[in-house]
């Protein structure tokens, strides 16, 4: 049996009095596409942010590629990671945000080559070449000189996906990538994500797009109140949920 890329065991995280995660258990295997669904405030974003070291886990075990998030094991002890080590691990995980968060002062091409050059120390020519092929893949070859503000939301999100891919991540995290888009622009972003899934990328996707979940996910995970309520293959979970909460949520989303 292969090792999971992400393994969460009883992961908890609180913000003051708010218990965002109350013991999340979840495994994600290589090449798997997992869709995280659930009501707003159920801790989906917090979970993704923990995986990417943007939030610190309070208790439980969270490993990415077999390494404990936030710690390094040496001589039988756990050492809290230094900032530079955290950065190195984040570099291997791609993240796509709801609001794109492209760098507005850089052109599209510069957005894509910034991290490969600054973080990975790739030679510029190599980074540019790879950036161009990624832009072609997301269908935006003609926009490399544009600034983000000149692009539509759908185009910006596709650039953001390409920017994450430029770091050659082993895992991609998507936090509601289409929620900020006008309805007619959702399709082009999902199209890119479908392509990625078909290429075997390991993905965790927080989404309300049930069509995408049904079509592209290997597994759908329903979260509520900071725990995983149930998970299963899309047609099982979406068609015949076992839990009342899942049923209630789905009836609202699919209505």
């Amino acid at each position: 049996m292969t090792e999971p890329v992400v393994r969460a065991e009883a992961v908890t995280k609180s913000f003051g009095h708010v218990r965002a995660l109350r013991g999340v258990d979840l495994d994600v295997f290589p090449g798997e596409v997992v869709c995280l669904i659930g009501p707003s405030g159920s801790g989906k974003s917090t979970f993704l942010r923990c995986v990417n070291h943007l939030e610190k886990v309070d208790s439980g075990r969270l490993t990415v590629d077999g390494e404990l998030v936030g710690y390094r094991r040496a001589r039988g002890k756990l050492y809290e990671l230094r900032e530079s080590e955290i950065c190195r691990r984040r570099a291997d995980i791609g993240m796509v945000f709801q609001n794109f968060n492209l760098f507005p002062h850089l052109t599209v091409l510069q957005n894509l080559i910034e991290a490969p050059i600054q973080v990975r120390r790739e030679p510029k020519a190599e980074a540019v070449e790879r950036a161009r092929s990624l832009l072609e893949r997301v269908g935006l070859s003609d926009k490399e000189r544009s600034h983000p503000a000149q692009l539509s939301g759908g185009q910006q999100q596709r650039v953001a996906i390409a920017r994450a891919l430029a770091m050659r991540p082993a895992l991609m995290l998507f936090d509601e990538p289409t929620s900020a888009l006008d309805p007619e622009l959702v399709g082009e972003v999902l199209e890119v994500m479908r392509g990625l899934a078909a290429d075997g990328m390991t993905m965790i996707v927080v989404t309300h797009e049930m069509g995408f979940a049904r079509e592209s996910a290997d597994r759908v995970v329903f979260m509520a109140d900071g725990v995983v309520v149930e998970s299963g293959p899309p047609d099982e979970l979406l068609r015949a949920p076992k839990h009342e909460r899942t049923r209630a949520f789905l009836s609202k989303v699919l209505a």
Binding site: A91, D92, M95
Partner: peptide, 22 residues
């Protein structure tokens, strides 16, 4: 916006570099 330093961090940029370049 906070999202800018967060996006830089998610790409593996150290905080000092994110501050200077982003």
């Amino acid at each position: 916006p906070r999202g800018q330093s967060e996006a830089a961090a998610a790409l593996g940029m150290p905080p000092g570099k994110a501050l200077r370049r982003i």
